[in-house]
Design a protein around this nucleic acid. Structure first.
Length: 958
RNA sequence: GCCCGAGUGGCGAAAUGGCAGACGCGACGGACUCAAAAUCCGUUGCCUGAAAGGGUGUGUGGGUUCGACUCCCACCUCGGGCACCA
């Protein structure tokens, strides 16, 4: 940017913007402008909240990456900031803060390679991110910027874990209750143990029984075990080839004892409460799919190895079940395999074990399977049907076994055709189905090209041989699937063969990691090797110091040896003595010898509840003061879930983070710790900023900033390059940083550009070239209010022309509504229009009327707070614009004396006429018919019909 | 394969049943300048026309309506999610 002599001293450019921005950022800090008062607790200022509505807005918890920010990161932060500032001017008590999700893998990987402690690395990353964000001028309450790695924070993460550990899910009441109440029910005999009576159990057996009911429990679960790295890996850390993302080591599926969260107990509430949330439908749908609730029935088929239980969503097709298929991992496979089939089954099993999960789920793969040699009995027909194994049946869903109904299920159909198994129709498809497939209607499935799924009249579905004998199941003639399902379920239930059942895709949540940089579990193991919560007075369980952060590396192909987490290296920390309380008897065991849990929590833990800590960040007595929680997050009326008023973030967290947080929040609600049933009442997904990237002829990416366009082609160093489009990132060499924008334009221009690019929820390409448009707008606006040479205001208290005043109020009306609806791009367009109108006035009159200047600056201030604050001050205002009331449109100035009405002839606009506001439809009709252009367009034709939309339009149909 | 979402100028976009393309970029023309940058003013969907004007136009094809970017049906393309879930 040139600063030569010809440039006026007080022109609004990057140099002046930098000066103004630093000045106001310092002032906001020192005056603590954005601190939000609480009703109670350490940050209580009850007098300041009186008479104000509250608004809690939240951005998704960022990970403090070492790479720093690019221009895509702050998009959502700017959006929430603009909204928060607008609402603050509208009288709301706005709480807006940003903390750091600072545990996690990258800092640990960095520590492993450099030896720098993850804490040091994390802290310097946070400092850098704070610096970059401060330059943006975000109106955050700095007191509330917590980090998950602070002991004062993770003390409460551990406390919440203990709450989850110390509760169980009462399926009768559909909610969590303290584990002590379960123990009381067992010991008093109100609740049966389902096995050995409580009184006859050993201490260890009692603990095990209770542990099996806890919401946080230890379970053997299949995990991604990577011996080369000495740790288990999250699914997203495993490549499609089944190797580790880092180091390319083999990864094995194996069972390991892990902390697990009983999220499945909440499946129905997590599903049903979605209806009460103000979230994008697409996200609700993703959560619904993830929970995957299926209604159906469990049915037991007799076999030589005992009953085989299956889950089916189509009990109504039971008469068409002509064979069964078990997953290769099913526990009954061995017993069902006959001597003659042993070799074939064993070879199939070993082949199946070698197929990776991704291959197994490939859609092009042909179905394979093997006959066990055994037969089971179809409970409705009494017929013997063969039992097969096949890897298209998954052990992890339902019961790991299915009844195969080839006529009604495409997968079973394909399998039956391949292995020549019988196919019996249980429903007659409609004629249209046969027509679509080009075959004649027939109940003989031999002619069918596919299975039939849909509504059709039931056939071949009675087990009384046509006698109408009492107690028989007769579906024949029924036309509705729901009726047939109900009849079948009732029949099965009456005979104890099966019952209606619901299955979920959702799995319990694997909660431990063999890592260092995470929250230690507040758990020790007692002399019975049973987990016991660390007493509250001993929290936090601080992460012990280590000299080496590497997990123990093993032979990359060693599937057998158990992982040894880094914390195990501190034997002095692991083995300790502690005053613990026996969970069953309640008696205190002083100085008990205990062993600490050496796994750590996953990164999700802190982000599951951080929003609550923003509200009461310095409270040492409780994780959040109940009154503070009720004020900021409590339900607004009967049936309202409560929760954050606006939560903005990317879709990538649609399922995991948002589901885990909802689960923890519901547990806290059940236990009476929070008044809100949901953490995030309104969710808004911001789009992404993407960017073009360029490759040369060798396929190498070249720096996007140095590519030039000529006639629609792109060149780097005069060599043609090809253009592609994707996320900003190092590998595509297309990163643009906020710092570059601050230097070239200033933060206000950058903020304005990001908000003007399009709707907040849409992704759009970054174009540095376009930013100048917003800078020019601010420059023109500045010039309308301030003399570019002297810096003095050019505002006059003289009369404002009526037309300009009307334009102003139309703008106020539109900008107000746009900002309320998060439509910042159109709000900005309206401000530019107003400023363009003002420029014409200033060109003629030489100054801006104060009645226009002040509201214009106020409307701009949520978007460009530094510039607006500066202008406010230069206009002679000594109050803080942040808390000045947002302008209100005068309804009288929104309507003008005349309106322009388009006139259509046969739906095409042929003329426009100016009519007095409030003209009657008849008057408009008369005006239109006498209009010269309309008469020409009609060409003498007689109008057959005239449509008048009052004050909007006239359409003449001839 | 199934389920969502989106397709509008050279580009980002606006209009959600009633004047398509607001606002911004770019491009073109002009002012200022020795010159350039910056800044300012004007033009800018496409076709046709000297102009006035006319025609045409919101992925494609149908439909509903006096009137459709907007609603309905089918298809095409792109993006996202799920994926042998019984």
């Amino acid at each position: 940017m040139s600063t030569s002599d010809s440039t006026p001293k007080e022109r609004y450019n990057a140099r002046l913007a930098a000066k103004i921005e630093a000045k106001w950022q310092d002032r906001w800090d020192s005056q603590r402008t954005f601190e939000a008062p609480n009703p109670a607790g350490p940050l209580a200022e009850p007098d300041k909240i009186a008479g104000r509505q509250k608004l809690f807005i939240l951005d998704m918890f960022p990970y403090p990456s070492g790479a720093g920010l690019h221009v895509g990161h702050p998009l959502g932060y700017i959006g929430t900031d603009v909204f928060g500032r607008f609402k603050r001017m509208s009288g709301f008590n706005v709480l807006h803060a940003l903390g750091y999700d600072s545990f996690g893998l990258p800092a640990e990987q960095h520590a492993i390679t450099t030896g720098v402690h993850p804490r040091e690395n994390t802290e310097s990353n946070i400092a850098n991110m704070r610096r970059q964000l401060r330059r943006l001028g975000l109106a955050h309450d700095a007191r509330r910027s917590v980090s998950t790695t602070d002991e004062g924070f993770y003390r409460w993460t551990q406390w919440i874990f203990v709450q989850v550990f110390d509760s169980w899910f009462d399926t009768d009441l559909g909610r969590a209750r303290p584990i002590s109440e379960l123990i009381a029910e067992f010991s008093s005999g109100i609740r049966a143990t389902g096995g050995t009576p409580w009184t006859e159990m050993s201490s260890r057996e009692r603990k095990q029984l209770v542990n099996d009911h806890r919401l946080a429990y230890l379970a053997d679960a299949p995990v991604n075990w990577c011996p080369g790295l000495g740790t288990i890996l999250a699914n997203e850390e495993v490549t499609a080839e089944g190797r580790s993302d880092i180091g390319n080591y083999p990864v094995f599926k194996r069972n390991m004892r892990q902390w697990t969260m009983r999220i499945t107990a909440y499946a129905d509430r997590l599903l049903n409460d979605l209806d009460r949330l103000d979230w994008p439908e697409s996200i609700k749908l993703m959560q619904r799919n993830w929970i995957g609730r299926s209604e159906g029935a469990r049915v037991r088929f007799a076999s030589p190895a005992g009953d085989i239980e299956v889950f089916t969503t189509r009990p109504d097709t039971l008469f068409g079940a002509t064979f069964m298929v078990l997953s290769p991992e099913h526990p009954m496979v061995d017993e069902l395999t006959t001597t003659s089939q042993r070799v074939a089954i064993d070879s199939y099993l070993s082949a199946a074990a070698r197929v990776t999960d991704t291959d197994r789920q490939s859609d092009t793969r042909e179905k394979t399977g093997e006959f066990t040699g055994s037969y089971a009995v179809n409970p409705v027909t009494g017929e013997e049907i063969p039992v097969w194994i096949a890897d298209y049946v998954l052990m992890g869903y339902g019961t790991g076994a299915i009844m195969a109904v080839p006529s009604g299920d495409e997968r079973d159909f394909a399998f039956a055709r391949k292995y020549d198994l019988s196919i019996i129709a249980t429903q007659m498809p409609p004629d249209s189905w046969f027509a679509d497939h080009g075959i004649a209607p027939s109940v003989d499935c031999a002619t069918w090209p596919n299975a039939f799924v849909g509504e059709g009249t039931y056939v071949n579905s009675r087990n009384d041989a046509g006698t109408s004998a009492a107690g028989a199941l007769v579906l024949d003639g029924i036309t509705e699937m729901a009726v047939a399902k109900r009849c079948t379920n009732e029949w099965l239930e009456a005979r104890g063969i099966g019952e209606a059942a619901i299955t979920y895709k959702l799995r319990d949540w694997l909660f431990s990691r063999q890592r260092y940089w995470g929250e230690p579990f507040p758990i020790v193991y007692d002399h019975d090797e049973m987990p016991v919560a660390v007493p509250d007075t001993l929290l936090p369980v601080a992460l012990p110091e280590l000299s080496d952060f590497k997990p123990q590396a093993l032979d990359p192909n060693d599937e057998i040896t158990d992982p040894i987490p880094p914390l195990a290296r501190r034997a002095d920390w692991v083995h300790t003595t502690m005053d613990i309380t026996d969970p069953i008897t309640g008696e205190t065991l002083s100085g008990a010898k205990v062993r600490r849990e050496i796994n750590v929590m996953p990164q999700w833990a802190g982000s599951c509840w951080y929003e609550l800590r923003y509200l009461d960040p310095t409270n040492d007595a409780v994780f959040i003061d109940p009154e503070v929680e009720r004020y900021w997050m409590g339900p607004k009326h009967d049936g309202h879930t409560g929760g954050v008023d606006l939560y903005v973030g990317g879709v990538e967290h649609a399922v995991l983070h948002l589901l885990y947080s909802r689960f923890w929040h519901k547990v806290l609600f059940d236990l009476g710790h929070v008044s809100s049933e949901e953490p995030f009442h309104r969710l808004y997904n911001q789009g992404y900023i993407q960017a073009h990237a360029y490759r040369d002829e060798r396929g190498q990416t070249v720096p996007a900033a140095d590519v030039r366009e000529r006639d629609g082609n792109y060149f780097y160093d005069d060599q043609p390059v090809s253009r592609e489009y994707g996320k900003m990132g190092k590998s595509l060499k297309n990163i643009v940083t906020p710092d570059e924008m601050y230097d070239e334009f200033g933060a206000d221009t950058f903020r304005l550009y990001e908000m003007s690019m399009g709707p907040l929820d849409q992704s759009r390409p970054w174009n540095t070239r376009d930013v100048v448009g917003m800078q020019r707008f601010l420059q023109r606006l500045w010039r309308n209010l301030v003399d570019e040479d002297t810096g003095l205001p050019t505002v006059s208290d003289s009369e404002c022309p009526d037309a300009l005043l009307r334009t102003l109020h139309v703008s106020i009306d539109g900008v107000q509504r746009d900002m309320d609806g998060l439509r910042f791009n159109t709000a900005i367009a309206k401000l530019i229009e107003l400023n363009n109108a003002l420029t014409k006035h200033v060109d003629a009159a030489g100054s801006t009327p104060r009645v226009v200047a002040e509201p214009l600056v106020q409307m701009l201030s949520p978007l460009c707070p530094h510039l607006a604050s500066e202008l406010w001050q230069r206009l002679g205002r000594s109050d803080e614009i942040t808390y000045s009331p947002f302008p209100i449109a005068d309804p009288n100035l929104l309507v003008s004396d005349t309106v322009e009405i388009p006139v259509q002839v046969n739906g095409k606009v042929r003329s426009r006429l100016t009519a007095p506001t409030g003209s009657s439809d008849d008057q408009l009709t008369a005006l239109a018919l006498s209009d010269e252009k309309v008469r020409i367009a009609l060409a003498g034709a007689e109008p057959r019909k005239i449509i008048v939309v009052s004050s909007r339009l006239v359409n003449i149909v001839a």
